Simulated scan of single mutants.
Amino acid sequence: MRIFYIWSMFMLLIHISCNASTKQNNEVALTEKPHKILTTKTDPNTSNIQVALLLDTSNSMDGLIEQAKAQLWEIVNELSYAKCGHNKIRLQISLYEYGNDGLPSKEGYIRQVLPFSDDLDEISKELFGLTTNGGNEYCGKVIATSINQLDWKKSNDDLKLIFIAGNEPFTQGPTNYKDAATDALEKGITINTIFCGNFRQGIDTMWKHGADLTYGEYSAIDHNHQTVHIATPYDDIILQLNNQLNDTYIYYGSRGAQKRSMQMEQDQNAKSYSPANAVSRTISKSSGFYKNKSWDLIDAAEDEEFEIDKIAEEQLPIELQDKSTAELKKHIAKKSAKRKEIQQKIQELNKKRVEYIKTNSKKNDTSLETALLNAIKSQGKKKSFSWED
């Protein structure tokens, strides 16, 4: 019996030791993983603007989607003027659609179209791919989903905004919008609501309350109002410069040619609304927000860590495959200088273009663009962001 008792105590000590070791290892794993995420994603010299667009794509929302397509580039352009001390500004946009009967019912008729991305061509492509159908609009559900799924920045100094647009009561669906708003507030995310219809009706159906809970802004817009693009005397020159700008891109990598084609497709999508909208996209392409390091050698070469000699020959355009590393670097430097020169010309012309539009346009306070920009600027000022006049 004594031997059995000693043996039992020995096994118990081993069990306790193993559990302690396992617990310690688990605690290390739990603490190390978040630490790694924070160190790789936090840049003290960057101020982030994160915008999640939650768009109702039920049958009645064709006008809303058309406004979003038509006004995307003017929104990006206005955001590109943001400043926050001496920090670099990084814009990320996410896109969700909800209220469409073509979406899975088990997901609450919600689809993440795009996670947070700074790839403006990708954002444009997905936006132009949206279609409308049917409708079960669950506002609380889509807000909660975007909060939980997206990679929101941890710092309270970053500008983290949700914009939800639709026209059905805010109270519909299995998730209480108040709970979603509470979660957003705890994470430093501001909810802004855009009701597509009568201002008073939006208040009565709790759209304003949904914004008030996180100190966001409520707007009512005429979503069926057609976007008016004002032509200016500078448009033709800017579009000619866009053709020259496109000639400075050098694709690389397994998806380089595909991404280069997407760039051209989004030029055409913008032009499908009007030449003036194509001009707005060209302005965006001359801004610091339009970067394509994943497929363009000019943008990629801006990183000190980028090594051109690590790119396989077959992943370069045919005309560059027989060039030496030194020749490639020289070619990239030449194209880079040309791009900066073209972008500078576009920016100078845009200053004149903006003044012309201010003089010749009637202020429209009922568009998606106006609702978005007013809220972003108002809330950005609270986080030390500012905009040039």
Rank of each mutant, 00 (worst) to 15 (best):
I3C: 13
Y5Q: 15
I6K: 11
S8W: 09
M9I: 14
F10T: 15
L12C: 13
I14G: 14
I14H: 08
H15D: 06
T22H: 10
N25V: 08
T31F: 03
K33A: 06
P34L: 09
H35I: 09
K41H: 10
T42C: 02
P44Q: 03
A52C: 08
N59Y: 07
I65V: 14
I65P: 01
A70P: 05
W73Y: 09
W73L: 03
E74P: 11
I75V: 13
I75T: 11
I75N: 04
L91Y: 00
Q92F: 03
Y96I: 08
N100P: 07
E107H: 14
G108T: 07
S117M: 00
S117H: 00
E126G: 08
F128N: 15
T131Q: 00
N136P: 00
Y138I: 01
C139Q: 02
C139S: 03
K141E: 14
K141S: 15
L150H: 12
L150V: 07
D151H: 14
K154Y: 12
S155Q: 06
S155V: 05
N156Y: 08
D157A: 13
L159N: 05
F163K: 11
E168H: 12
P169V: 02
K178M: 13
T190H: 07
N192A: 05
T193D: 11
I203V: 10
D212M: 01
Y218A: 01
Y218T: 00
I221T: 06
T227Y: 06
T232R: 01
T232V: 05
N243K: 12
Q244W: 04
N246I: 05
N246Y: 05
D247H: 12
D247C: 05
D247Y: 04
Y252I: 05
Y252L: 13
Q258K: 05
Q266V: 10
N269H: 10
A270K: 01
K271Q: 13
P275N: 01
F289G: 07
K291G: 15
D296W: 10
D296T: 14
I298Y: 10
A300W: 02
A301V: 09
E305P: 09
I311P: 15
A312T: 05
Q315V: 09
Q315I: 10
P317W: 08
E319S: 12
E319K: 13
L320D: 10
L328A: 12
K329M: 03
A333V: 02
E348C: 00
E348D: 01
N350D: 05
V354R: 12
I357D: 09
K362S: 06
T366A: 06
T370G: 00
I376R: 01
Q379V: 03
S384P: 06
